[in-house]
Structures are given as C-alpha cells and as structure tokens.
Simulated scan of single mutants.
Amino acid sequence: MLKRRLGRTDLSVTAISFGGLPLQRCTMEEASSVLDAVLQKGINFIDTARAYTDSEEKIGRYLANRRSEFYLATKSMARDKVSMAKDIDLSLATLKMDYIDLYQIHNIKTREDLDAVLAPDGALEALIEAKAQHKIGHIGVTGHSVPLLIEAIQTGHFSTVQVPFNFIEQDPLKELFPLAKKLDLGIIVMKPLGGGQITHTDLALKWILSHDITAAIPGMDSVEQVQENFAALTDYQPLTPVEVALLSKEAKEIGPNFCRRCGYCMPCTVNIDIPQTFIFHLQYTRYGLKEAIPERYANLPAKASECIECGICETRCPYDLPIRERLKQVAADLEK
C-alpha cells in the first residue's frame, strides 16, 4: 500500500484517498457500500465538506464506529470566526465524532475571501482555538486560484493545501507545489480526474502519483469506482510514452475550460440541473450519442432554455465558466 507523509502533520496517508463530494449523490444504502469498500481496500484518508449536503452525515452514520481506521478531513466556507466555530461544532455533531484530523478553509476564490479569513475575528481564529481545544488536529486551505493559495500558505498558518491538479490542469507544478514542499505542507490533489471528464482513469492517477504530491482524492460514488481508483495505487508503474500520448490526446479533446461537476453553481434559480445538463451535452457532442442523449435530456424537469440569465451560478463557479452562454448552446443542440 503506497502511503505518503502529509507534510508537517506527520500523518501517513494513502496516496490515492477518498473524495466525499459525490457521496451526496448516493442513497444511504449506496453510501454504506461505498464507504465500506473504501476501508476494506485500506484507503485511510477521507475528505468531505460542510458544503457537500449530506456527505458528512453519511460518513458519520457508517464510519463513526470505525474511527481508528482512517484520518478524516472536512472543510467550511465560513469566513468569520463565529460562523467557522459553529461549522466546526456542526461537523463534529454530524460526523458523530469528537475529533477531526484536518479542518480546512474551503474554496478561497477571491482576495476578499482571503482577507476575511485572516482578519481579526476571521475564520482562522476559530480554527486556531478549535485546535487548542483538541477538536481538530491541523488546519488546511483549499481553492482553485493558485496565486491566492500561494499567498495563503506563505502566512505560515496552514499545514496542508488542496488544489485541482490533473493532466489538463498543471499550473500548481510551476510555483505552488515547490513552495508547499519547501514549507513542508501536505499537498492534497482534488479533481485528479477532472471531475470525471478524464476517461483514462488508471493512467491519469498514475501520472499524478509520479509527481511529488501527498494524496489525490478522486470522488467516488460507487464500489466500482473505488475498485478502479484503487488499482492505480496497488499496481503503480511509470507511464510509457504511448500512455502519455493517450492522455495528451484526451486533454486536447477536452480543452481547459470544462465543467468539473463540483456542483458549486447550484442551486439554480429556476431549478436547472446545470452539471447534469453539461454532462448530457458532452456526451452528445464528444461521444456521438446523438439519439440517446436528446431522449434523456428531454426528461429533465428544467431545460437549458429556461435560464433567466440571472448569473448567480457564474458568481459561484470556481472556474469562472460562462455558464449562461453554455446553456444557450445546450438548448440549441439538444432542444431542436
């Protein structure tokens, strides 16, 4: 089992670990099977968040009595001290646990976010107090903006940094990862499969493992996905030139501006399932499912053409995607 040291936390975690965002798409029974498979395989690091609807609840229901088998990370979007303190206690209660190994400030997206967190009576103060009270073990930060994360970790307050990194998104390699290693921070990779867009799962994960990161946390919502992701961990070999070429071809086809299915854009004002709508469009345009997809799309309760262009979704998207324009294209292609 390939394990790596999570920076100065000194926790030894499996290099492929569990991302809990898709767990919110599972029923309670499905979540039980997925989480059991994770621990059965020996994966020992589980990451979730307050924002992932009932992900914490599912983990608490099925894993609270197996607490010694894994390290636990969660995170909050709170920016002020009072709200963060409340979220820490909510996490503990929902997870049915009295200790969280890593609590992270979630999704630093703007300068205002970072300033608020670090200000007097900001979220960081609540985390420092929770650590002193032994409610949490370590403090981390997550985000999609590499420049803001670089600034955040230079403050010295954080023991881990979590950022998107995959064969398509390689920006962290230039400055963030070297700085994190210099500061002895654990490096947690989110979106290692591009939110499910990268289909060469085994190759994509092995490519990530060839870099000096601590753990990749692909999201998993089925036992089959657990098994598939675990294979990269147990049968790790450097990629061949042919395999690298396969990844390069897929990266070129996907392009840099794609939906990662994180769901941060939701809920939609008029109840459009934006990630699912984009998945259908991708399957229609990229995979040539010209007959099946329009039929499935037609069953959605709200269509892309119903967008009122309020723009709220775009303010939430961590990748600043032009969601309104893309919904217009979906409508043009799938509502003929």
Rank of each mutant, 00 (worst) to 15 (best):
T48D: 07
R50A: 12
A51N: 13
Y52H: 11
E57A: 14
E57N: 08
K58V: 06
G60R: 02
N65V: 10
R66D: 03
R67A: 08
R67D: 08
L72H: 05
A73T: 12
A73F: 02
T74S: 09
K75D: 13
K75T: 13
S76D: 10
M77C: 11
M77P: 05
M77L: 12
A85L: 04
A85D: 14
A85T: 10
K86M: 07
D87T: 11
D89P: 01
S91L: 05
S91Q: 09
L92G: 04
Y99K: 05
L102K: 10
L102C: 06
L102P: 03
Y103G: 06
H106A: 10
N107D: 15
I108E: 08
K109V: 10
T110I: 08
R111T: 15
E112R: 12
E112T: 14
D115I: 11
V117Y: 02
A119R: 13
A119F: 06
D121P: 00
A123T: 13
A123M: 08
E125L: 09
A126Y: 08
L127S: 11
I128W: 00
I128H: 00
A130V: 02
K131N: 04
K131T: 01
A132Y: 06
Q133N: 14
Q133H: 13
H138V: 03
G140Y: 07
S145R: 14
V146Y: 04
L149A: 09
I153L: 02
H157M: 00
F158S: 03
S159N: 11
S159V: 03
Q162N: 11
Q162G: 01
Q162S: 12
Q162Y: 00
